[in-house]
Nucleic acid binder design. Structure first.
Lengths: 352, 352
DNA sequence: CTGAAAGCGCTAACAA
DNA sequence: TTGTTAGCGCTTTCAG
């Protein structure tokens, strides 16, 4: 292994100068710097992260805490963040935070969760943490704060910490308004199940946006038009089948709280012999890879760019730039495709 | 920050004893160990990874090198590995290896790739590396070898290194044989495009398995029945539409080299008014989350368990257990669902 | 602009 | 079984 000492010897300077040179500090003469760099290259020297971290207190590593490793959305965010961080010379280490099962303290997920906060994150392997869609209890929040590290939340905002998030009310309001503007009045909503995701606020917030758009249009919201599923294609497929089979309601449009659920809704409609969008308009939220394939109208929230943005933020906080806002709203845009169209003419339920 | 010295003081022992105690070394009396643990707990002591790494040479961190962060398959593997490694006290840091664009040396992907091998991985942040589906050139292989770290390949085998992989020929042979046993004779194959994935051997290997099964059944393979796509639903959808519209061939079954492509094929068949499996049997490979939803018959390769297995392997190599095999074959199994059935009766192309 | 020297916090011989 | 001690390889004052 090549150490800094060998580089120093070869370049005929002290290790201090090599360190300064390679760190790009200004106080090194160009001539010296050149010699040091040549020596480093010749010996194939690369700094040892452990030694550097120990001496400087900086690890050049960012922790990414995710509730799930197999969700398309989180991986898109991770992809955006990892690329930006890697280009800035940071590694990314991944921490999985399993859902806390509130009921069972002895459940392995709960133990893993505790271990993450009590041990793993406290080993000082990261300069900063990015917490995605995390719902933490007070003890956990406190544990993170005590780390004294830069912490940025994305999605589920960590209380009292700089975080980025969509304005979910506005997103749902805009989606619903799009359907209203097409003449739909019986608009169903498929969202998350509160029981599935403990404390996960997003489904409720989106539902509120949906209802406020309806209210503004003078439409009374019908609880029978609101269905819950587990954010998967399969789950929404079932929920939509039940919705469409219910004789009490006759929706002409569905607003799903995620693209995957919207895709499930489209497939359910097709299997029931309905055409999308002629018989049923469907829209989602996310900007999923498959949205284009299914011609899905959606509110794109640019997940990969969210990753980039959160990485930028972390980088600038690490660079010592002051934190401006405590909550920053992320951009989104409605992308109109072929799964939504004007409402079909009303036909009376009474046969002629 | 609580250091080991403070724990030593509180417990009334030396730092060496604390270190030994907490590392679970045997040569510590139970009484001492108890006192040390109490002191550590009281002070909330957690070892500093940088200091520990520097002193011991072990980082307790595993690098995971992936060609893609947004592929369902890789994430499933990652999930399995990360859980097992985390339970063993290891962190996982993620490295993205962008595809090398052989043509353009100045392309950013190529630069990132070089940087990963020349700098990032050489900073000694990992005790071991797991390389998933990597196609490396000789220089890159050499760079990895020079790291002198434990290295395990999964999928694309790194030459001369312990690796795990599916027997792709057998997988394709078994899939094709399943369709043959149902009475199909005109069996199409949708696989990867050689131009898409430079040096990526899997598509060719699976095709060979497909062809050998046909040959064994006395069926001459028809190049028009083999189509290529990019391993996505959308890509296979298009390829299948073209296949089914081609007047020169009349396949009654499709074997796709991945579940996502098989799903694309199912959707294409449906959109052309064909029933699956009555008019067309379709099967894939992977064991995708959505396979069940689409009733897809598939060869499940248990990706999450692959992750676990590769993690186990790394762990045991790090524990100093000898490497048994250089290439280990992974298990797989045919899962029969509703997308395959017996071949439809032949109808003559001449109208009665 | 550069060098000397003092650690960073921990582990692992080596002694006792 | 335990303590002493010498680093691990680097960064960073502090002098010069």
């Amino acid at each position: 292994m090549t150490t800094i000492q060998r580089v120093a010897d070869l370049a005929g300077v002290s290790t201090a100068t090599v360190s300064r040179s390679l760190a790009g500090k200004s106080s090194v003469s160009p001539a010296t710097k050149e010699r040091v760099e040549a020596a480093a290259k010749e010996l194939g020297y690369v700094v040892s992260s452990a030694a550097s971290s120990l001496a400087s207190g900086r690890t050049r590593n960012i922790g990414f805490i995710l509730p799930d490793l197999d969700s398309w959305f989180f991986m898109a965010v991770l992809k955006g963040a990892q690329r930006m961080l890697a280009d800035a010379g940071y590694d990314v280490t991944l921490y999985h935070l399993p859902a806390a099962n509130g009921l069972d303290v002895d459940e392995p997920g709960t133990a893993r969760r505790a271990r993450l906060f009590d041990e793993i994150l406290r080993r000082q392997r990261c300069d900063a943490l990015i917490a995605v869609n995390l719902e933490l209890d007070e003890r956990e929040r406190e544990a993170l704060r005590e780390l004294g590290r830069c912490l940025v939340g994305l999605g589920g905002p960590v209380h009292g910490v700089h975080s980025l998030g969509l304005d979910d009310t506005a997103v749902a309001y805009d989606a619903t308004t799009h359907l209203l503007s097409l003449g739909h009045t019986a608009i169903a909503h498929i969202t998350g199940d509160a029981e599935f995701e403990r404390d996960f606020a997003m489904p409720a917030t989106r539902r509120a946006g949906y209802e406020s758009a309806l209210a503004e249009a003078g439409i009374e919201s019908d609880p029978l038009l609101v269905r819950t599923a587990d954010f998967t294609i399969a789950g929404a497929y079932e929920a939509t089948k039940q919705l469409l089979a219910d004789p009490h309601v006759h929706p002409t449009a569905v607003f799903a709280a995620s693209d995957e659920m919207a895709i499930g809704a489209i497939l359910a409609a097709r299997d029931l012999g309905l055409s999308v969008p002629e018989d049923l308009s469907v829209m989602g939220v996310d900007g999923h890879d498959l949205a284009d394939f299914f011609g899905l109208t959606t509110i794109d929230q640019y997940p990969e760019q969210q990753g980039q943005r959160v990485a930028e933020l972390v980088l600038s906080e690490l660079a010592g730039e002051g934190v401006e806002a405590v909550v920053e709203r992320l951009p989104y845009a409605l992308v109109q495709r072929s799964s939504t169209s004007i409402a079909p003419p009303l036909h009376s339920p009474i046969t002629p």
